[in-house]
Amino acid sequence: MSQLGQETPVGQIASGLRALWEADHAKARAALMNLVIYAEDGTPLEEMAADAQTIAAEQACRALVIRNEPCPAGDERPPRAWITAHCRLGGAGGGQICCEQVAFDLCAHDNNQLRNIVFAHLDSDLPLVFWWRGELSDNFEPRLYSRFDRLVIDSDPWPDPAAGIARAADPEGAAHYVLHDVAWSRTHALRLAIADCFDDPGALGALAATERITITHSPHHPGAADLLARWFARGLRWDDLQAASIIDRQAAPGTPVSRVEIACGDDRFEVSDDGATIACAASQAGRETRRILPAAPSSPAATVGELLARGGRNELYLKLGLG
């Protein structure tokens, strides 16, 4: 048996899963959602399965892990599937809580196969969260995404994030699913920390007089920095020109966004993320304060887990003027 579990003919997945539970009555099956983790970029199935396990540890789900390497007509091969369960110990003296995972290796030359594989293996009545790793392809089509409740993307590595986000956000002018961008969610903890700095009315007054914002980001995460800059601009009602003159972005090795410095006259606010904690330091009206907050999740899977735990409509993201 591989790390993916037991290889099972696609037509026997349902019976295979049933046998999995019948074999061990001490395990309880749990699912709050269907979670599809999908990649066409050659990401190994094992890596995606590890991500599913990370998410399932806190968000009980039926995970469908799908690698699809489109192949030319004539070279098709039948899909392969593996079944397993991710288990953890329940609290309150409970036994093992397990989430089903079905992994698929596809070589599809059209989108029928993907759609069928997804639809045929959903746990009925549960919401469908679709994490599309990599750029959207032609397989992102209405008959598939019309079933989504949440679509998760990561625009950070995309060469043209605006175009990709526009496509993901409103493919037919009436998107009914909630769109989440890991690049945006990466900044959540930092945004909370920054917002905390300005709850004090005195600090809020200083914010209105912001002269300079410096965002230091990893060279691999320019998108997160861009989203953060847009967030400042929206909150402070700056137009593009103002934003460009006030917000400076610098690339440096480190966490996706390692530091945000805000200079408002004599007042200074600095929020930094070293991967272990977020440190907030403020020098405002002659008073120095410093405090430590929990860091943002470090991996994409943990970020997705956290955004799912928060839920909500994620409406602010769509108001940032992307796409």
């Binding site: 945004r191 917002a195 004090d200 009315p201 967030w231 909500g312």
Partner: peptide, 22 residues
Amino acid sequence: MTISSDNPLREGLRSRQVAEAC
């Protein structure tokens, strides 16, 4: 003095009321 509900950077971050320093 109460917490400022005008903090523009709070938009979309929390649905619950924000605890105030004290």
